[in-house]
Design a protein around this nucleic acid. Structure first.
Lengths: 365, 365
DNA sequence: CCCGTTGACAGGCACGTTTCTGCATGGTGG
DNA sequence: CCACCATGCAGAAACGTGCCTGTCAACGGG
């Protein structure tokens, strides 16, 4: 009786290990490993035989042992900034959902799985971060001096961020939109549609998206000589958005066009406009940044800016896996995904608001 | 020079292991392990000393080694039925997002992390499922004879499903709403609001949610003696929903109230009603099943049924972790979460039709 | 006939923990 | 003073792989 058999006799009903397969197939452990992993130099007959025996025993290699031995776990962390206790922000919901969905697909297609992790390290009883072996991490919208990111790169783990890292966060790579360009495109689109005074509905948080978009708006205002008209609110509170939209339209210097930076701002602004008896787009042009499809069927349909979260999620994961597998030599470490302005009725060009000329080009001849 | 030092000399710059901590602290490996894990019987002085040295060296225990030794990984799989290539269905988006969010929170609070996995096993090059060590799995809406679930329970892994398992799927536990009761509540709510002929917008898929809801509707129709008026469409296609909503309102036996089973049906039906010049709620009462907050600010606001995905996600994870940790002795293995009907203008009671002879059921007296 | 070469496999170490067992030491009751 | 026990710690065996190193037979050329 061999030692393996003896020790096996102790814990019955355990999952079949590579030893059992080797014993059942009458070969050594090495041969089983090589046969199943397609390595070594074995005749096809042996390979088939081993594979068959392994299948018959229902053999599943132990992921933990494989990870311990190879140093690769096939796991990618996905972490998002946390407001309160929830691991996702509320308002940018659709964006994160789509982005996470695309990231998951891309990872699975390359044989990796995504692990959702909190942005806050050092949680109660044990730290979840150190309890999972990661090959790399995707960080969504990292904050300024994120301790988690610093710790990860200190450990030598590849880190790719969605959103350019604030400060000098030493990430491996990042993917982002050109938010300034997007804001300028929208402002010019609204101006071309006849807007004279464009307002902004923005957030009080300090993330780069909010910051870049707001400063781009302010610079544009300065350039074209318009007084900035904007209201800020904590973006994580959905009720505050409705209130801020109301405030914006209640101002004495009420804008005749508004761009809302966050997903629910479209319905918020629409509801506020209705309360003040403003017709969209006749009295108020509306654009908001959203991935939601509901804006295609609102009354009226609202023009939205899509940040292309699917493309971003895919790109982030590809970059990360390339870095993990060492395929990123010479690749650019930053990638800019173009945004897409989906023009709908809410921002459609209207005739000049003078009373001299009739509302709609009367009698085109 | 000890063997440990010698072997350490080989691979430089590697992460500090428990050996290095032991050497630096002048104690044995056992002492380090016990000190950091709060086990054994050590004086507080030693414990503090070891902890301090470990911190100074930046020691992080290897998750792989720990998993290999203890058999627990702290990882929970989350798998959802896949339509096409995407790991989430499109229409029940908000539901899944919320449910996943709550599940993630609940798992993290108990020291576990969630791994997103595809419902389809045996993917290209290697199987992702066997590449990750799971302590248990959450299955969302498992299909009839899901091979993945069978395989998992065969391996002895706890499996908890969101949605009662179809057929005789041997899950450890499940959580679900009472879909029949929910449908009945809505139908009676609509009837009480004056509906004479209630239509249903449903799906062609065979999942239990669709199935239970539809049969509950049909049984109700039979009981109250109304002819069923419903349209089905493949729920994963968002465009098909708009088309089906249109079909439903274009029928000669057009309903005067509609319940839509899927999230986007509210806007779909609203848009269709608008096309046919039907006023909501005056000509058409509307309810749909959705977790989206946009229905609070549509024109008019739409009554929605919430399945309480947050509560479901939390319950599923709690049940699973209880099973993993062996705390589920005697606990019920099935848990029903009540739904919540959020009544808004679209289904608010309206006065009886004003004309002498109402258009429906002419002069019932 | 011998030796280098190649194919086909076996032995055994290492990965980094956890934990069981065991060995000292010092205090205490008999 | 001895037996005894609690305390504080060390040694070493697993956990299940992957892979490096070796062994043995067959084979062909000189």
């Amino acid at each position: 009786m061999s030692r393996a058999e003896t020790s096996r006799r102790g814990n019955r009903q355990s999952r079949a290990g590579i030893r059992d397969v080797a014993a059942a197939a009458g070969v050594s452990i090495t041969t089983v490993s090589d046969a199943l992993n397609g390595k070594g130099r074995l005749p096809d007959a042996t390979r088939r035989h081993v594979r068959e025996v392994a299948d018959r025993l229902g053999y599943r290699p132990s992921a933990a042992a494989r990870t311990l031995r190879t140093g690769k776990s096939g796991l990618i962390g996905l972490t998002v900034t946390t407001y309160g206790d929830e691991p996702f922000t509320f308002t940018e919901f659709a964006y994160f959902a789509e982005m996470a969905r695309a990231a998951t697909s891309a990872a699975l297609a390359r044989g990796y799985a995504l692990v959702i992790l909190p942005a806050t390290s050092r949680r109660s009883p044990v730290d979840v971060w150190s309890n999972v072996a990661l090959d790399g991490t995707v960080v969504v919208d990292p904050s300024d001096h994120d301790p988690v990111v610093s710790e990860l790169v200190r450990q030598g783990l590849p880190v790719v961020s969605d959103g350019r890292p604030a400060g000098s966060l030493p990430v491996t790579a990042w993917v982002d939109n050109d938010h300034e360009a997007a804001v300028l495109e929208i402002l010019e689109h609204l101006a071309a549609a006849g807007a004279r005074r464009i307002g902004l509905l923005t957030g009080t948080t300090t993330d780069t998206y909010t910051h870049l978009s707001t400063t781009a708006y302010l610079r544009w205002c300065e350039r074209v000589g318009q007084d900035p008209v904007y209201e800020s609110y904590p973006a994580h509170d959905p009720c505050a958005g409705a209130v801020a939209a109301d405030r914006l339209l209640a101002r004495p210097d009420r804008p005749d066009a508004v761009y809302g930076l966050f997903d629910p701002n479209g319905t918020d602004l629409l509801a506020a406009a209705r309360r003040y008896g403003l017709r969209v787009p006749d009295d108020l042009l509306l654009v908001c940044c959203s991935e939601s499809t509901v804006y295609a069927t609102t009354e009226p349909p609202i023009t939205t800016l899509s940040l292309k979260p699917r493309r971003i999620g895919t790109a982030v994961v590809q970059l990360l896996i390339d870095a993990i597998e060492g395929l990123d030599a010479g690749r650019p470490v930053e990638q800019v995904i173009p945004t897409e302005l989906i023009v709908r009725t809410s921002s459609e060009r209207r005739p000049p608001r003078t009373t001299v000329s009739p509302p709609r080009s009367p009698g085109h001849s």
